[in-house]
């Protein structure tokens, strides 16, 4: 473990793969092909990007000007808020992988995750300066913020699309189709999970009431 941390070669590779995300941003088709096929991306870099995304999203709550984001702190649950990014991401990765494997997709689960994380780069990259910028504008200039914020999201969405096409070696039409299918798969999974949890809670409630009944009789 300690050896890995002090290994200079490892660090250099990490930095290279992290910097490679910027190349992916500007050259999506080339970049995402090389990401898996030339092994120029690493899991560590993907995790870092995801961590940065979550971190920026949390920082935004506090440091964006109140003109744009008003937070009802009393009701805010930080873990739920983090889960609101991680949970859809997990659903997307699993759903996309599950579907594409059945239809000649070349990407593996880890690769889908890595490519998706690499595609998130525009979010921290645009949102962080935007967060600082928001404190220097008035309501009349609020449109700038809204437009840039929207660009960061659309950019990331487009990158995800390109990334999926490249790692699965799909044509553009097929990528679009499977993106839509993956979204449906996410919905189905949410439905099943909700069903599952409500069943479990019903089951638990049953045994609790059974226990109560027993206690009353004794």
């Amino acid at each position: 473990m300690l050896e890995a941390l002090t290994n200079k070669e490892k660090w250099n590779e990490y930095w290279r793969s992290l910097k490679f995300s910027l190349y992916c941003m500007t050259h999506p088709i080339d970049g995402y092909w090389d990401l898996t096929h030339e092994k120029r991306g690493t899991m560590a870099a993907a995790n870092t990007i995801l961590f940065l995304t979550v971190l920026i999203r949390l920082l935004k709550l506090r440091f964006t000007s109140f003109i744009f984001i008003q937070v009802y702190w009393e009701e805010l649950n930080i873990f739920l808020y983090i889960a609101s990014i991680l949970f859809p991401l997990a659903l997307w990765v699993v759903g996309n992988w599950g579907l594409t494997t059945l239809f000649d997709g070349k990407g593996r689960l880890g690769q889908v995750y890595m490519a998706t994380c690499y595609a998130l780069v525009p979010y921290p990259l645009i949102q962080f300066p935007l967060m600082i910028f928001s404190n220097f504008v008035t309501v009349d200039e609020a449109e700038f913020y809204a437009v840039l914020s929207a660009i960061s999201l659309i950019y990331a969405a487009c990158l995800i699309l390109f990334a999926m096409g490249q790692i699965h070696e799909f044509s553009f039409g097929k990528t679009l189709l499977f993106t839509v299918f993956s979204l449906f798969a996410m919905l189905v999974m949410v439905f099943i999970l909700m069903l599952f949890f409500s069943m479990i809670s019903q089951g638990v409630a049953y045994f609790i009431s059974l226990g109560k009944e027993l206690l009353f009789r004794m």
């Binding site: 109140f66 003109i67 008003q70 220097f136 008035t138 309501v139 009349d140």
Partner: peptide, 18 residues
Amino acid sequence: FEVKYDDENYSKAYKQYR
């Protein structure tokens, strides 16, 4: 203004301050 989320008035003040 910031304490009570009055963005219109805040912007007026901020514009002058800037």
